[in-house]
Design a protein around this nucleic acid. Sequence first.
DNA 1: GGGCTTTGACCCAGA
DNA 2: CTCTGGGTCAAAGCC
Length: 287
Amino acid sequence: MSSSTGSLDHAGFTFTPPPFITSFTELLSGSGAGDAERSPRGFNRGGRAGAPKFKSAQPPSLPISSPFSCFSVPAGLSPAELLDSPVLLNYSHILASPTTGAIPAQRCDWQASADLNTFQQDELGLSGFSFHAVKSNATVNAQANYLPLFKEQQEQQQEEVVQVSNKSSSSSGNNKQVEDGYNWRKYGQKQVKGSENPRSYYKCTYNNCSMKKKVERSLADGRITQIVYKGAHDHPKPLSTRRNSSGCAAVVAEDHTNGSEHSGPTPENSSVTFGDDEADKPETKRR
DNA sequence: GGGCTTTGACCCAGA
DNA sequence: CTCTGGGTCAAAGCC
């Protein structure tokens, strides 16, 4: 892949919460932490360690640092609050939705985003909370015309990768850890090869919704290390989810959920890398 | 009683 | 062609 000059494949967005934040979801929902992993017992076969692929190491297409932004939030202040705060009002949508990759026009102004960092820090004197938005070179290069480009991307991309470094989301009871306003049902878990972290597979429980997501979480602390959304929701985000009552579902503000459109589940996590790769890849593998 | 999680087995694509 | 490993299925148990 590309990685270097690449193809506009990924827009990386990396959220690096401080150590004290165990779950972004928690932050958003304000709910307590749940048990990290209910039963970390055996996983499937294929658990032997192998050559690290892209799990242990960040894929080249997922830049760690970038011109993108990085802003801080004062300790004690949840991102959600921040997002809703007047300060961030105009930027609160900068986060592209992991599921739909929705990115409002404002989000295209990465420069602005960058300023935001400073802005917040300067204006609010925030600190302790780092939000690193990372984007792929391609994306970065596209800064200028990011808007149109991104729109196109969104219409095509079906797989979004949420890189959560140092991060979060404890499973609150139901492992619905990653609450994005949708209801997910776990249908499998596997120990992937190049990583010691188990990967969980979730499907959107909505009627014929084909949206799926893979969640990788650290065995050590149960924190989510990566989330990959695949497919698109073909239904509006449920106003209130049964168990997601944590409040996260609140993100229901705008949802168009037409996979190809944008909408978005909220990146509870925040680091979002829009992978398109599988965009054209027909979800093969079925049985 | 229904829905969800867990977990071993199976399927299949790619190397 | 064989092997490896990711993704999915489905039964069982739990909440």
